[in-house]
């Protein structure tokens, strides 16, 4: 059945290596195209294949480092990465993930942390998805978008109604020549902190929230947003990988290696494909993807599970038996 079974030393099970490479490729393609990490896809797939959930999540983060790095580098070469903006977002992101530990403790004391996190996630994704879908559909149908794929690909199509003027109007205005905008330094910092807190709480890279936030709140052109988001995701997921490896030993390097092999090959192709598609269509597709994920997550919460009981994965497995 399995063509090439490979034993994963930390996940402690064997999975078909070719299938892992294929999953990696699918995620890499999406990563390069939309500027999202793809952790939200890898983790459930690995769990479905029998990888214990904590190992699936941590190893997923490790894979995202590679796919987002490949994508970010491709965008950097193409000149569609705003380094200045990216550095500010990363700075805010690190502060935010630190703060998330505190927020996590606070929510745990209140009880129902699982419920709060799950609900937050679904509502945020659902809300963002609907807003994006409506906005991008309008932009695509508007006459300006019909000027041809060349113009759409340049990503300079202005949004009809950018939101978040208060955020951009905060003090310490700064020029971002790469994005061609002027905004407050505080805007990307605050956004980074917010995404960092959510990342820490929900264990996802946050690309899904970051991409629309940069488009609609910071009014950045879509083409620059993808590369810049990938840049931020490299650092966030590297941070998660390192912390998980140190505190729980849940990063399986063999599993990550196979997934990475597929994803790094596909990520530059995704970036190229994204550039061909053009900004407006890219936004519609991303909106649909966000909605699909929100819908799937929401359904998973509402639907009665097949088995209400589950075994909690033990982070400290029994020691190795002595060889006779």
């Amino acid at each position: 059945m399995a063509l090439l079974p490979v034993y994963l030393p930390l996940a402690e099970t064997a999975i078909d290596g070719l299938m892992l490479v294929a999953i990696g490729a699918g995620v890499g393609l999406m990563s390069g195209m939309f500027g999202v990490g793809g952790g939200f896809l890898i983790t459930p797939m690995l769990i479905f294949l029998g990888v214990p959930p904590p190992i699936a999540a941590a190893t997923g983060a490790n894979t995202v480092v590679a796919s987002s790095a490949a994508g970010a580098i491709a965008h950097w070469r193409r000149g569609t990465l705003d380094l200045k903006m990216g550095v500010l977002l990363v700075g805010g992101g690190f502060a935010g993930s630190g703060a998330s530990v505190w927020v996590f403790g606070w929510l745990t004391r209140l009880g129902q942390i699982d419920l709060v996190v799950a609900l937050c996630y679904v509502l945020l994704l659902g809300g963002v998805g609907i807003l994006m879908f409506a906005e991008s559909l309008r932009a695509m149908l508007a006459p300006s978008a019909k000027a041809g794929p060349a113009k759409a690909a340049s990503g300079k199509t202005a949004l009809s109604k950018p939101r978040g003027r208060w955020l951009r109007g905060l003090p310490w205005q700064m020029q971002f020549p790469k994005s061609g905008i002027e905004t407050s330094v505080l805007a990307p910092l605050l956004l980074g902190i917010f995404i960092g807190v959510l990342t820490g709480l929900m264990g996802v890279g946050g690309g899904f929230l970051l991409v629309p936030a940069m488009i609609y709140l910071l009014a950045m052109p879509t083409s620059v947003v993808v590369g810049t988001s990938l840049f931020q995701i490299v650092f966030v997921s590297a941070n998660v990988t390192f912390l998980q490896a140190v505190s729980h030993q849940t990063v399986d390097i063999v599993l990550a290696g196979l997934l990475i092999a597929g994803s790094v090959v596909a990520a530059p192709l995704g970036a190229r494909l994204g550039a061909k598609l053009g900004a407006a269509r890219l936004r519609v597709l991303l909106a649909l993807l966000v909605l699909a994920v929100a819908g799937q997550l929401g359904y998973g919460l509402v639907e009665r599970p097949d088995d209400l009981y589950s075994i909690r994965f033990d982070l400290a497995p029994p020691p190795q038996g002595e060889t006779p």
Partner: peptide, 15 residues
């Protein structure tokens, strides 16, 4: 952990 991150970044760059 550091190695896992470095390998990933290198793989991304190499590809």
């Amino acid at each position: 952990g550091l190695l896992a991150v470095l390998i990933a970044v290198f793989a991304g760059w190499a590809a």
